[in-house]
């Protein structure tokens, strides 16, 4: 009887803790690897608001190399680190930014999307997303070097789901390392862009 009770409680916990599908798009059909619920965050941020953003150069899916400082004096930058290609939440994050280009234009900002996957993987993955208008960068080798420098590399070698807002002077204005299991709301992004663009 006691054993049955424990069994029933275990079933209840399993049912309550199962991972939600998070509105997964049909665009990826059954191609995504379901990682299940993960530890919310698993790193310690190494940059802070007010500091100069560490510069880096990474290869992009488009073929060219992108350097953060090339935007200095010209555009605000939102670094969008996502954990891994072909996983549920990440795969529905950037397609939303695709239709939000006007918002980024409005606030004179660009996005740099970054994962620790290699370029062929990123190429195949982003082709499922429609027309991604912003550069998608590979932080694959040395593995996660940029993510590590910013303090968003997790213990398993993936990146956090993090947003780093960098103004035209190259200074970090806002950081957001969210729960890896949840997509950051557009509300947060718009507020940060607005504030960054309004600042002197």
């Amino acid at each position: 009887m006691k054993t049955n009770g424990y069994l029933l409680i275990a079933v209840m916990l399993l049912a309550a803790g199962a991972a939600p599908a998070l509105g997964e798009s049909l665009a990826f059909k059954a191609q995504l690897y379901d990682v299940g619920p993960l530890k919310s965050t698993d790193s310690v941020l190494k940059v802070a608001e007010g500091e100069m953003a560490p510069d880096f150069t990474l290869p992009s899916v488009g073929g060219e190399k992108i350097t953060l400082s090339q935007f200095r004096g010209n555009k605000h930058v939102m670094l969008s680190f996502v954990p891994a290609a072909w996983t549920p939440v990440c795969s529905d994050q950037w397609p939303g930014y695709t239709i939000a280009r006007s918002l980024f234009d409005q606030y004179d900002a660009v996005i740099l999307g970054i994962t620790v996957d290699n370029l062929p993987t990123l190429f195949a993955w982003t082709r499922q997303m429609g027309d991604i208008w912003f550069p998608v960068l590979s932080d694959f080798w040395p593995h996660g070097k940029v993510a590590e420098r910013y303090g968003v590399l997790r213990g398993d070698g993936t990146a956090e789901r993090a947003l780093i807002f960098i103004d035209k002077n190259g200074r970090i204005r806002k950081t957001h390392v969210g729960d890896i299991n949840e997509r950051p709301k557009l509300d947060l992004i718009v507020a940060a862009l607005k504030e960054m663009n309004a600042a002197p």
Partner: peptide, 10 residues
């Protein structure tokens, strides 16, 4: 639908 879903956008 979802704002983040490419098929919904299309």
């Amino acid at each position: 639908f979802s704002m983040y879903c490419p098929h919904c956008q299309r």
